[in-house]
């Protein structure tokens, strides 16, 4: 396990931000931490990095206890926590060089090369000397990711890594993270964007109101539902052929019970019913997440007793 927590709890005063989380992430995966706003994702990430001290529970990162062994663990971890941050009066390149020089370890000529390489990888290789203050949101985000990958970490902890990026930028980041993962880096990212996690991750964990509601591989989550969706210009024909199996019908789309689209297709074509599309229905990540999580903490509903008088 590259990352393991046991009964991890964090209280801020009377608010319980994270409650009894036992999470295990194996080495080499791309892990997505999902959950509504305020569900404790960021607090969990901050605890993993030793920024926030747990009220109770146990954390191991790279096999070592945190935050006790932060000095040996953190140099092997790259992180983006709640958005990028930089010294606004300096250029992006100067920011990375100073941040790198701030810690112990390798220096000199290789530092400049490492910084240039990281900037190249995130698509900021040609950036000029203007201060970060003048950067766009997307450029700052890229700079933050460059800082995270600067020292070729074994573990990348990224909080909302695609914030502020345009669709092309998002695609580039996805390709970058997939490449890094293929080269051996474990990627853990937290996001409330389900499509993002669905497109990138191999494993997911879902948080809800401070608890870890679920961990699973993405494939297992998206199990077939036992239904097949048939698209056809002749829905009545489908109903005629597969009577009894039809569960629903909406325009050109007919929902049929079954697990073998090939057989259904053969059946329909043999009876002369035209088929323009056929797909085995899978649960979407969205359905799963909405099923197991409540409203985010940014929604505040009126208590029921407190109606209009």
């Amino acid at each position: 396990m590259i990352l393991a927590t046991r009964d991890l709890t964090k209280r801020f005063g009377r608010v319980v931000a994270v409650s009894g989380v036992s999470l295990e992430v194996p080495r080499g995966v791309r892990f997505g931490l999902l959950g509504p706003n305020g569900s404790g994702k960021t607090t969990l990430v901050r605890m993993l990095l030793g920024l926030v001290h747990a009220t109770s529970g146990h954390i191991e990162v790279l096999g070592e206890p945190m935050p006790k062994r932060a000095a040996t663990v953190l140099p092997r971890v790259g992180a983006l926590v709640e958005g990028p941050a930089a010294w606004g009066h300096l250029s992006g390149r100067a920011n990375l060089r100073l941040l790198d020089a701030a810690g112990r370890g390798r220096a000199g000529r290789r530092r400049a090369d490492r910084v240039d390489e990281a900037l190249d990888r995130v698509g900021l290789g040609g950036v000029d000397r203007r201060p970060v203050r003048a950067y766009s949101l997307g450029m700052r985000q890229r700079l933050g990711i460059a800082a995270a990958i600067l020292r070729e970490p074994e573990l990348l902890l990224l909080d909302e890594p695609t914030n502020g990026l345009d669709p092309r930028g998002i695609q580039e980041m996805r390709a970058l993270l997939t490449d890094l993962n293929a080269a051996g880096t474990t990627v853990v990212l937290s996001s409330h964007l389900l499509t993002e996690v669905e497109a990138l991750c191999t494993d997911v964990g879902v948080m809800d109101r401070g608890r870890l509601a679920l961990t699973s591989s993405l494939d297992a989550l998206r199990a077939p539902t036992g239904r097949i969706l048939v698209r056809t210009p002749d829905p009545a024909g489908v109903v005629g052929v597969l009577d009894g199996q039809v569960l629903g019908r909406a325009g050109e789309l007919v929902t049929v019970r079954g697990t073998d689209p090939v057989a259904v297709n053969a059946q329909l074509v043999a009876r002369g019913v035209p088929v323009s599309g056929l797909v085995l229905e899978q649960r979407s990540l969205e359905q799963v997440v909405l099923e197991i999580t409540g409203a985010g903490s940014d929604r505040v509903d009126r208590a029921r007793s407190e109606g209009p008088r």
Binding site: L49, L74, A79, W87
Partner: peptide, 14 residues
Amino acid sequence: SAGTLRYLLVRPVG
């Protein structure tokens, strides 16, 4: 307030 504190601490700087 600039947010750079968290990045210094995870760099890590003791």
